[in-house]
Design a protein around this nucleic acid. Structure first.
Lengths: 116, 116
DNA sequence: GGAAAATGGAACGTTAGCGTAACGATCTTC
DNA sequence: GAAGATCGTTACGCTAACGTTCCATTTTCC
């Protein structure tokens, strides 16, 4: 049975990681974009616009625009689904993997600092 | 000596908490705004525009605009410093405390789910 | 085959973010 | 007290976000 996080530890972790991320990377993602990005990389594919919209409880254009922006940043990619050509399959990229790898490191550093 | 977070745990924690936060709150803060908000609430005052800009390594207008927006959202407040009237002291609000309390709960829930 | 449904995106007007540069107000220095 | 430095904000032109609505393409269902 692990020891539970205190409120102070939870927010301290978030604070430190957010701060480090802001300091070392110019790309200022919104929480929505971040949730989309993480979902794409952590949940087994395939991922579609409609599916992400339902998952995040936002409208489809929100997803489309987030993918536009993050695509421009090199964090995600889009490919038409050949099985059902109405669908667009969202793909991972090397840039996105690197971005999240770095974020993961920052979070782990904070956890270490806070002795979580 | 605590067990260290794995990369998967770190990102999974961030993913789950970001997702829940997006789902239950319309206010879509950027990572910069979030870092500012957390800094104000977790680091002892006083907080100034200049100080925050230096801490986050961003320009002053970025802080001013973030405070405008978050002030409108009821998350922070601003007061002129009577000791040096060039300064503006950034104050905490009930709304901001509630927002972060909720965020902390979401993070802790995720940590519990991931058995961190 | 033809109607209906579903998907992702575009269009519209609005709002909010950015960096750079300038501003008025205030304090410090001489 | 005048000159300069410092503080937060505003202005500018631009980019990107929003919600709503509508649309072209593709699939499904009789």
């Amino acid at each position: 049975m692990p020891i539970e996080l205190t409120a102070s530890q939870a927010l301290g972790l978030w604070h430190g990681a957010a701060l480090d991320q802001v300091r070392h990377d110019d790309r200022d993602l919104t929480l929505r974009q971040m949730a989309i990005l993480l979902h794409i990389y952590l949940v087994p594919p395939p991922h579609t616009v409609r599916g992400l919209a339902a998952t995040l409880d936002v409208t489809k254009p929100v997803i489309t625009r987030a993918l536009d922006t993050m695509g421009e940043m090199g964090l995600v990619d889009r490919v038409r689904d050949d099985a059902d050509r109405r669908n667009v399959i969202i793909k991972r990229t090397v840039g996105g993997a690197l971005y999240l790898e770095k974020l993961g490191d920052l979070i782990r550093d904070q956890a270490r600092r806070l002795r979580i």
